[in-house]
Amino acid sequence: MQQVEIRHDWTLDEIKDIYNTPLLELVYRAATVHRQYQDIAEVQVCTLLSIKTGGCPEDCAYCPQAARYNTDINTHALMQKDQVLAYAQKAKAAGSTRFCMGAAWREVRDNRDFDRVLDMVKGVNELGMEVCCTLGMLTADQATKLADAGLYAYNHNLDTSKEHYSEIITTRTYDDRLQTLENVRQAGVSVCCGGIIGLGETHEDRINMLHTLSHLPAHPDSVPINALSRVKGTPLENMPKVEFWDMVRMIATTRILMPKAMVRLSAGRSEMSMSDQALCFMAGANSIFTGEKLLTTSNPSFEEDHMMFELLGLKPREAFKTEAEALQVELH
């Protein structure tokens, strides 16, 4: 079969047709694309640590860390570097190759806390792991400082479509998010950007979000697909549970639109059976978060994921593999 091309000009109608393909046919098509661009037995294993929890001034309707909501989250100030590095070493020993640090900030400020994060980035990088951060909005100068410290990737999700965004967040704009992504890309840092389903959006909103992602100057290197974690005390606590089949449909569509991206099966995995997850991998997912917590919500343990990998014949993707492959191309 002829290899599909990488495109940045998908139309909304084309994406709608893909998204609405009968599910088994959609999974087959996505699996075919996946085989053309990825090692299907390889899954990127990432660990996410909340290095500063709660007290965020934003009003993201899904987030238990927003200061204005009464949730059961225990807030804590920025962690110490040695604590973070100890957690990173544990994650590496358990098979993770990417370590992501999240701080509940609206935006990065040029202060001592940011200097401490830069020091953490240097420390994790020295462990031989891909280091990622999600810290809120970034200026171009801050993105460059993170890159200079050894940051490999930066996560900043669009969450939903531009049309639905104001129903979920009012404390920053969609264009603010897009500007941060541009600042990250210009600094030479890998872009990690996806969204959340289950926020009360329509199927059209999901299609519009994927359209925006696929039309970025370069496709995100990582695209997390999250199912809403319904947390008591947040405005979305009573939303219906996301249908598993909707996750499969989103993953498969994302794989077809952005063949080279790592498509991450993210929040919501703790409510999936092993067979559910296997179908997501078949549909094109090739990245997960492992470890007991995703910032503040539950996630399968390292041990559970080891068992799943063994049963399904999966292996962790090596750190910095993209760069190693690029070097091989140059040498030959």
Rank of each mutant, 00 (worst) to 15 (best):
Q2C: 06
I6H: 01
H8E: 01
H8G: 03
H8F: 09
W10V: 04
L12Q: 13
I15N: 02
Y19P: 00
Y19V: 02
N20T: 07
P22I: 00
L24D: 12
V27G: 00
R29P: 01
Q44L: 13
T47F: 07
T47A: 15
S50K: 01
T53P: 00
G54L: 04
G54M: 03
C56I: 08
C56R: 06
D59H: 04
Q65F: 08
Q65H: 05
A67K: 15
R68W: 00
N70W: 05
N70Q: 10
T75W: 08
A77E: 11
L78N: 06
Q83V: 07
V84Q: 08
L85K: 08
A86S: 14
A93M: 11
A94H: 03
R98L: 02
F99A: 12
M101S: 13
G102W: 09
A104G: 02
W105F: 08
D110V: 04
D110G: 15
N111D: 15
N111K: 00
R112T: 09
F114N: 01
D115F: 03
R116I: 14
L118W: 10
D119N: 09
V121L: 08
K122I: 02
V131K: 04
L135D: 14
M137T: 10
K145L: 10
L146I: 10
Y154E: 03
N157I: 02
L158M: 05
T160V: 05
S161E: 04
E163H: 12
E163W: 03
T171Q: 07
D176K: 01
D176H: 04
R177P: 04
T180P: 06
E182A: 11
V184D: 03
Q186K: 13
G188A: 11
V189M: 08
V191L: 10
C192D: 13
G194M: 06
G198V: 10
I207W: 05
L213M: 05
H219Y: 09
P220A: 13
I225M: 14
A227Y: 03
L228E: 05
V231E: 14
K232Q: 12
K232V: 13
T234K: 05
L236A: 06
N238K: 14
M239L: 14
K241P: 03
E243K: 13
F244N: 13
D246C: 06
D246Y: 04
V248M: 11
V248D: 04
R249P: 05
I251G: 02
I256S: 13
M258T: 10
K260H: 13
M262L: 12
V263H: 07
V263D: 07
S266T: 09
A267N: 00
A267V: 02
S270V: 15
S273Q: 12
M274E: 12
S275T: 10
D276E: 14
M282S: 04
M282Q: 12
A285H: 04
S287G: 05
F289W: 07
L295A: 08
L295K: 06
T297P: 01
N299S: 11
D305H: 06
H306V: 08
M307L: 15
M307S: 08
L312T: 04
G313F: 11
K315E: 14
P316F: 02
A319L: 02
T322M: 08
V329R: 12
E330Y: 13
